[in-house]
Design a protein around this nucleic acid. Structure first.
Lengths: 200, 200
DNA sequence: CACACTACCAAGCAAGCGCTTGGTTTACAA
DNA sequence: TTGTAAACCAAGCGCTTGCTTGGTAGTGTG
């Protein structure tokens, strides 16, 4: 558990991963990612943490609330980690690499399954919850856009900012389907290759 | 209906879009894309084409069979269109642009909804069907890889071929969530911008 | 006209779903 | 030791799901 995470837990902004609720959320993220939200039953969720299905509703008021909570906390964690990573970067190129590395890490380390759920299962939320999640991501996205804008001013980037960001979102997000961190190529190498899409 | 599509229909390789089955498949693609496969009921599918839910099973033996058929035919159509587009391209750069344009078109024209289903709903298929679909896409992918390889030999591309293809797959596929062909930027312009990810 | 075949309907079944309820155990503070 | 609240179980309710069944119009063929 890194420093950022510890801070978020002790300030009450996210659930302690050690707690019953936290373990349930990790199990839920795993099942939602591998089976999909709709195909995961509350009975499976209960069984995954060793309780009856009905007992889930002591912790969450509905199955959808579990999904929402998983998404919510993942965003909070990764925004915090992104801010932290940007602190140690100076030039636009360094910042861009930091953002890319951060986003790749969010997909391929501890929050990986939750991030997959965020990308693949947002339609399972009711419309108001979808808006709420989108709003949470806004802070995240504005960090990206301002960094890209800086890169354009430095002559590093030719693309339109919005378009480039969205193309990169897709490129990075898709790695969840094919990249394995324990394979031939390291996360940092993958980040370098991804950066080369934006600059040359 | 373009020439490629007409040929595929008359040779029996894909269902006539005018037929009852064809109309059902289009409606299914639409519902699966907007609501997701699991959240779409057979009653909705029936209602969408004006028949009872039970009558669906006269055309397909199961709901999953509808999903499979939608995916299958979309792949067949787009492989054919890709071959056609490559015929008119010579240099590696032209070929690459043709492939990108083709893939973008597959997502944003008539097969768009079915392509979205292909990307978002493959987990809803049983394992054997998943393998079958993956196998169908192999021909498609090998066209991409050989073109990228040609680009590398011409010094046009620096990236590793496999990695570049997968990054591009993600970048292009993700456009389904944000790009609208009737918006500010044309499909061809988007293709150009996408090409600039790979070459500079 | 008789026959066969395709396309459909009306009704409903068995199974599985999310969630509720009433009661019991556990943990810990007073 | 007692009181209280959190955490959980056992049972099952009401509803929806994919799919089946038995029967019926409509259409073309000999």
């Amino acid at each position: 558990m890194d420093a950022v995470l510890t801070e978020l837990v002790s300030s009450g902004k996210i659930t302690d991963p050690q707690s019953a609720k936290g373990r349930l959320m990790r199990a839920a993220a795993h099942l939602f990612k591998t089976k999909g939200y709709e195909r995961t039953t509350v009975r499976e969720l209960g069984a995954a943490v060793g309780i009856q299905s009905g007992s889930l509703f002591h912790h969450f008021k509905s199955k959808e609330a579990i999904l929402l909570c998983v998404m919510e906390e993942t965003i909070v964690i990764n925004i915090a980690r992104m801010h932290e990573a940007l602190k140690q970067a100076n030039s636009a190129e360094e910042k861009l690499l930091a953002l890319i590395t951060c986003e790749l890490a969010s997909i391929h380390t501890d929050t990986g399954e939750a991030m997959g759920v965020l990308v693949y299962e947002w339609r399972s939320l009711g419309q108001d919850k979808q808006k709420y999640i989108l709003q949470l991501r806004d802070e995240y996205e504005s960090l990206w856009l301002s960094t890209i804008e800086q890169g354009k001013q430095e002559g590093l980037i030719q693309h339109d900012g919005f378009i480039l960001r969205r193309l990169l979102t897709g490129a990075i997000g898709w790695t969840t389907t094919w990249y394995r961190p324990d394979g031939d190529i390291s996360l940092d190498e993958l980040a370098e290759q991804t950066l080369k899409l934006a600059i040359k």
